[in-house]
Design a protein around this nucleic acid. Structure first.
Lengths: 128, 128
DNA sequence: TTAAAGTATCCAGTTACTGGAAGGTCAAGA
DNA sequence: TCTTGACCTTCCAGTAACTGGATACTTTAA
């Protein structure tokens, strides 16, 4: 299967799949013409990575998860550890963004948004 | 005032301040020795940018806001528009992260996290 | 046969810094 | 006066994860 079909199958752009090959994340064998020849194995791996990336795992997380995925002897504890670590980071990000949202939302409410120059948003940014 | 004191004053790393100078965001005049000589104006601008960045505004947003900040004739409507646009993006990010968190959190709960290989997290990633 | 579609590699750009190297400047102490 | 150490400068490279574009080769269908 060529790259375009692998892209359709996994939902990833062909460019991204080439990139994953380049960094050694998912490395399909090649045909004699140099084209990437995706097998079931690589298709599964691409879908796997696509899902993990959609959940915000980094490429290096994906690499580790993929190693566990391929390992029949893995301990689910190892997977869970990585996932929990990532969950913690997601929760930190959410909380940071919520703080930003609350502050900004408050400032926006205070601003008249008319033709006059007075603006509590700028006033707030100005403060030392 | 030299860069180190400007850094202390604004809470930004000296490296970052040099970077802001390089991209033309905050451009202090120079002393005869080539050192950046920060005036009140640039100090205010650095603080302003630091606050805007802390709220997640991009550098280009900061550039636009800084232009409005310097403009006595600005309309607060322009500031409010940029801020609302940014707020929308923050809210989208929060919502995306919350979806991730819920999914991941659910998967983690389902995983035993023991020495056995069975793992609902991997199973989920595997599905086509 | 030829034109279009698909594939390949390689290079550069994105965002907002950050680290490090090489070298000039300044202030204080011996 | 000399030197040492703390500053300061610029420039180059690297980060994360792609993405766009140029150029060139291969395959497929009309």
């Amino acid at each position: 299967m060529n790259i375009k079909d692998a892209a359709l199958h996994s939902g990833l752009p062909a460019k991204t799949i080439r990139y994953y090959d380049e960094i050694g994340l998912v490395t399909p064998p090649r045909d004699s013409n140099g084209y990437r020849a995706f097998q079931e194995t690589e298709l599964h791996q691409l879908v796997f990575v696509a899902h993990a990336r959609a959940l915000g795992f980094t490429i290096e997380d994906c690499r580790a998860l993929l190693t566990l995925y391929k390992d029949d002897q893995r301990a689910s504890a190892d997977v869970k550890r990585i996932a929990k670590e990532h969950l913690k980071q997601i929760e930190t990000k959410i909380s940071d963004l919520q703080t930003m949202r609350d502050t900004l939302s408050h400032l926006i409410d205070e601003c008249n948004g008319d033709q006059r120059p007075d603006c509590p948003i700028l006033d707030n940014f100005r403060q030392l």
